[in-house]
Design a protein around this nucleic acid. Structure first.
Lengths: 270, 270
DNA sequence: CCTTGACTCTCCCCCAGGGGGAGACCCTAT
DNA sequence: ATAGGGTCTCCCCCTGGGGGAGAGTCAAGG
């Protein structure tokens, strides 16, 4: 019943480094230390202590906590239940935290996959019918670069009520460097006005649509195509026009702007 | 759109220390660093990056991983799904691990509570009827100190089949320093022989019982009382006698030996 | 113009829970 | 006596920051 540190390491499955650390920290003191050589020697009692420490470490107790636990326990009547119950509560909280993380990651993966699915390489102008949808919007005046901020605002406010891709309504009939009148918004299941958010039904109708691939700076090229088509067909466009962000910078990563997908929708008189 | 590090800290809820660390690690490089003063200045793009980093940190991504993620993502077509799915799997594994820990702690608390419940301060000799129980035992010959080891062996082998307090059967009719014949065992629900373990029914019957409080070295005092009582009553004792460990050193902590509770049971002829 | 107070800079040390390795002893077998 | 394996202490490294010292910077007020 007298083991060198190497043997004891094989017995307990603690590394020699770890055993020395535990000695230094005072939670696993060798039964005997040779005064001249400094060699550590462990005995059966050390073995039991080591098993206890392994269990407690698996329970995520810190070394310091383990020491106080053993100190309390060696001396007076042991109240080991208290710390154990406390640790149990901690562990439950940790589980809940990780469950939340799991849900968040899963939802991001899901939305990310959705956008990654349908990516044809060529897009053409098409006419289609849009349904009326309930939206929450935040109307603002300024420069187009502000769109992202407004969109973030709306999305954060609506949270899990979101029910479709975010988009922007452009209430101007023209392009404006500054003082543009636009409205970042998002389809929702339900919601209320408040804090700059307007909730209402956005009427549908017949529209001309074109999906634009690439950075937002080049959107005007696609707009040109859309309005060219409308004029050619003799249609009359309605205001507001819409940009639907099928695939944009995403929540975490900017992604490659060349892969951004934005659908331009312009409703026409019927 | 130009923030000093203090302002940016308030905006992003990262400490100044953390922001400097993220700069050094290359995951959040200020838009501008004054060359003469070394002051850091952040812009709107930095803000979005910071939000992404916060999300990823909440997902438990390491800083190094975050950097590679952003690097991959800034350059080529982003494969952010892969790492996210991998992280999701990690998180699920972590949840399972913590659930296991939770179960272990809960079971320890439960058994610990059971033993802590019924602790009268005075114990007296009593006669009672023992039922026949199925046990798994490991018969061995040697010194009494070996009991603990044998008990550990049996308990580990039977695991969740255990169905009562561990005990030892003493097959000798006398006290022996060495070469004692005893059998650490534990009641079980079911099980099979093997690896030195013998599974069988332990017959019950009328017995004389006394609960001993204190360290095992003093057990002989209680034995004296039990056999004195048996002789006084004119009973005839049967072999093996039993020691049931109601409260012993426990799985993790030794506890206070003065609180150990051991029930001595000696069956008598009827 | 100077001072003052608030900011910010770099640099160093600290934590947990070890890992890796250098250089020096120690122990036993041949 | 020597070789090889074990062991010792001491120091630096990792992650994700926190705390603080000492020096430099900035803007506002007197």
């Amino acid at each position: 019943m007298r083991f060198s540190i190497g043997e004891f390491s094989r017995i307990t499955a603690f590394s020699v480094k770890t055993l020395r650390l535990y000695h230094e920290k005072g939670i696993l003191v060798p039964a005997h230390v040779d005064p001249s050589s400094g060699y550590r020697f462990y005995d059966g009692e050390n073995y039991h202590r080591a098993r206890g420490i392994r269990t407690l470490r698996e329970f995520d107790f810190s070394i310091a906590k383990i020491r106080t636990l053993f100190e309390e326990c060696d001396e007076k009547s042991s109240d080991v239940l208290g710390p154990l119950e406390q640790k149990l509560a901690e562990v439950e909280k940790t589980i809940e935290r990780y469950k939340g993380i799991s849900r968040s990651i899963a939802s991001i993966i899901e939305t990310e996959k959705e956008t990654a699915m349908d990516q044809p390489h060529e897009f053409e102008i098409e006419e289609k019918q849009l349904d009326t949808v309930l939206i929450a919007g935040h109307r603002m005046t300024g420069r187009y670069e502000e769109v992202g901020r407004g969109l973030g605002l709306v999305c954060r406010k609506m949270g899990r009520q979101m029910n479709g891709k975010p988009m922007t309504l452009y209430h101007d009939g023209e392009y404006k460097e500054e003082g543009a009148d636009f409205e970042p918004c998002v389809p929702i299941r339900k919601g209320k006005d408040g804090e700059g958010i307007s909730v209402r039904e956005l009427p549908g109708g017949r529209c001309v649509s074109l999906i634009h691939r690439g950075p937002y700076e080049n959107l005007h090229e696609s707009y040109k195509q859309v309005f060219g088509y409308i004029n050619e067909k003799g249609y009359t466009s309605k205001i507001p026009s819409r940009e639907v962000y099928l695939k944009g910078p995403g929540m975490i990563f900017k992604g490659n702007p060349n892969n951004y997908l934005t659908e331009i929708q312009v409703l026409i008189e019927e």
